[in-house]
Amino acid sequence: MTNELSTPEQWLEKYGDILYRYGLSRVRDPGVAEELVQETLLAALNAKNSYAGRSTEQTWLIGILKHKILDYFRKRSKDKSQVVADYEADIGQDDYFDRHGNWQENDAAWLKPDQSFEHEQFLSVLHECMGGLSPRMAQLFILSELDGIKSEEICKLMSISTLNNYWVMMSRTRMQLRNCLKKNWLDQ
C-alpha cells in the first residue's frame, strides 16, 4: 500500500508549524526558517512524483528540510567574516574557573533525575540559552548533538581546522549552556 500525498496547500496547513519549528531550532533565525519552509515545500512540489510512499509525508518533508538546512550551514561557513567574528565571541568567557582552575561557583547540579525535559517551560529556557550562544557555537552544538553528525564531518562543514579546536569549542559551548540553564531553570 502506498500513502497518498496531500496537496501542497494541505502540507502547509498540516506541517507548516512542525517544519518551521524544526528549522528554527537549527538555524535560529525566524526569517531564515520561514524561507527554508518555503524552499522545502517548493522542492517537495517539484519532487512530488518521486515520493515513494515508503515514509510518512511528515518524515519525507523533514528529510527535504534537513538537506536545505545543511546547504544553508555550508554556505554560511564560507562567509569568512562570520567565522572570525564568531571566534572572537568564543574567546574570553572563561569566567567559570578561578586562576587555579577550580570552579567559581559552589552549588550542585541543576537537574534532578525525575525532572522532565518535556516541560514547555524548560524548552523555552533552553531556546533562550541557545540564543545566547554565538551563532557558530550554536551551529556546532546543533549539528553535533541534535543531528548526530560526526566530528570530522562537522569540521569540514564549518571550516574548523583541527579536531582539537572542535573539542575545545564543544567544551566551551556545553559550559556556557549549562551555566545558563542552571541560572534560568533551577532558580525559577
Binding site: G16, R21, S25, E34, Q38, L126
Partner: peptide, 23 residues
C-alpha cells in the same frame, strides 16, 4: 525529529500567506 521548541512557536500568518502564493 522533535524540534526542541515549545508548540506555541508557530509560522506567522504573513509567511503562510507568502508561502501559499509561492506554492
Amino acid at each position: 525529529a522533535r524540534a526542541l521548541l515549545p508548540d506555541s512557536i508557530k509560522l506567522s500568518e504573513q509567511s503562510r500567506e507568502r508561502i501559499t502564493q509561492a506554492l
